[in-house]
Design a protein around this nucleic acid. Structure first.
Lengths: 103, 103
DNA sequence: GATTTGAGAAACCGATTGGTTGCATATATA
DNA sequence: TATATATGCAACCAATCGGTTTCTCAAATC
C-alpha cells in the first residue's frame, strides 16, 4: 500500500479526476460518467487519492462530494523547485550568450 | 510499455536518480553505488528515464554518462500550472480576508 | 413498508512493475 | 593476446495495479 502523491498522480485517469474536481466538488457517480470505466473502478481511484490527502470528502445525505485539496498539490511543486533553479539558470546562460553575440 | 513522465517519476528510486544526476552526469555504476539494489535494477530505471527523455546518454569509451534533460521536467510544471492558479487564488482570498479583519 | 439509488468492500483476474540472476558484448588494461 | 571492467539484455519471479463482478448497506423515494 504505497500511497505517495507521485504514485497517485502517475495514473492518467487519476490525473483526469483531479482536473475534473479542481473546478467543482463532484459525486463518484458524476465523476464516473466522464470515464469509460465502472463506478467501482473510479471509486478505487477516489480512495487512493483520498488516502494520500489529495481529495477530501463531504457527505451530503447518501451522496459524497469529493473536492481537491489543492494545497497538497504543492508537494509536487516543492519537489520541482530544485530543478526549476537549474532550468532557469540554463535559460539565463542562454540569454547571456545571445546578448554577447549581439554585441 | 506506458512511458510517460508522470509514471517515470512515480518511483522513489527514479526520483532519487534524477536528483543525483541533476548535479552532475554519472555512470550507471556510480549511480548504483548510491542505492541498495543491483546495477541491473538501476540500469532498468535509467532505461525508463531515458525512454521518456528525462535523461540523455553520452558514451565515453566503455562508460556511459547519464545526465538530466531538465527541460523535460517542465512538463510536470506545466501540468501543475492550472492548480497553481487555484492555490494562489485561495491564498489571495485568505489574504483579503485578513486585510478586511484588520480594518 | 417496499423499492430505488448512491456508494463502498470483497473477491477475483490479467497485465505491469521492480527486482533478481545469468549471459553477451565492447572497451581498457595487464 | 588474455583478462578485467562497464554496460545492456533476457528470462524469470513475487507483488502490485487497474479493472471487473457481486454483494452489502444506508439514504431517498414511492
Amino acid at each position: 500500500m504505497r500511497r505517495d502523491i507521485f504514485q497517485a498522480v502517475a495514473d492518467p485517469t487519476r490525473r483526469a479526476i483531479i482536473g475534473l474536481i479542481a473546478l467543482q466538488a463532484m459525486t463518484p457517480n458524476a465523476i464516473a460518467e466522464n470515464f469509460n470505466t465502472t463506478r467501482q473502478a473510479v471509486s478505487k481511484h477516489l480512495r487512493i487519492l483520498t488516502e494520500c490527502e489529495l481529495l477530501k470528502q463531504e457527505q451530503r445525505g447518501r451522496e459524497i462530494y469529493y473536492s481537491l485539496e489543492v494545497e497538497k498539490m504543492k508537494e509536487i511543486d516543492k519537489w520541482l523547485e530544485q530543478f526549476r533553479e537549474i532550468w532557469e539558470t540554463k535559460f539565463k546562460q542562454l540569454d547571456n550568450l545571445l546578448i554577447n553575440i549581439k554585441k
